[in-house]
Amino acid sequence: MSEPTDEVPAPEADDFDPTAPMPPLKTWSHLAKQRRRPSEYEVVSTNLLWSTDGDMPWALNPEIPLNKWYLKYRNGSPLRHDDWDGFRDPDQLVYRTYNILQDGQETYVDGLLDEFSEKQHDKGLDEAWIAALARLYTPARYLIHSVQMASAYLVQIVPASTIENCAMLQSADQMRWVSRIAYRTKELSYSWPDARFVAGERAAWEQERAWLGFRELMEKVLCAYDWGEHFVALQLVAKPAIDEAFLRQLGIAAQRNGDTLLGLLLAAQMADSDRSRRWTRALVDYAAQTDGNRALMAEWIAKWEPLGDQAIEAYCAELPDNPEAAREARRAAGEFRASCGFDA
């Protein structure tokens, strides 16, 4: 057996022998070119899409709706890069490490829920705060689920598997919190049967002034089908707005109202958002290697930011005991964008 090699020789035309043994490789041929030992992440995550190889995404008639969809919204996006497959998740998460990470995080959350339940935490909250939770916390499962859906759109429309994986884990993270909010909704209903927990969330999401801005934002983000615009609208505007208004500012109001449990839960959720922000920033930087992309993304931000700000304003205006909420949330969302190289 010959020694593994990094070389990927191109066969010569005249002495072509299709069955002549070729030397084994140290890694996949496509990674051998980078001339260093690939990580587990690279081995199992890179260059996995076949629909980006040629001109036609799917091996069917060019006129079928799904070919037209991908040609328009993915291949035809104005956000361009010669090598999207070169993108790398800064956290280098793979499936198995994601489960290790999140199993640990969920054990922590289980511990919180168990501990606060033992202490009869919910019964100790005051009635006004309970009413606030029914209006401003438990309906959020609709909001977070809309992010689960939007992230799943990215999964199927982005041009590289390394981007797809980030979006996939983000979608799963959202389901995590939809589940935990559902859990808390039920638990709160046991202590406060008259507070319209379980029964009232859909109406609140559809009608409450606090949610109108977020609902408008997310309905429109979900319909932003160009992959580049969807990425910008979701990752640079909608998610930061949700993080800052819902996770951070509701968390502050919770602490001021003696709801330590909610503060800790929202902080745990923020850890998932922090990871999301890391790959978002990395993808912005990566995209910006191509001339014109930064300006394009800035245009999209300019288009979506008013909807994000409006959502923050509408939601934060309803938060009890947090008069600075809207200003702080807008500032922090803008700060995140600034950290990605987009100044307000």
Binding site: R141, Y142, H145, V178, S179, I181, A182, Y183, T185, K186, E187, V198, E201, R202, W205, E206, R215, E216, E219, K220, L222, C223
Partner: peptide, 17 residues
């Protein structure tokens, strides 16, 4: 089983699109 159904009541009626 106590909370599962709540986590799958996430359909809403859109009004902005």
């Amino acid at each position: 089983s106590e909370w599962y159904d709540i986590a799958r009541e996430t359909n809403w009626t859109p009004s902005f699109v």
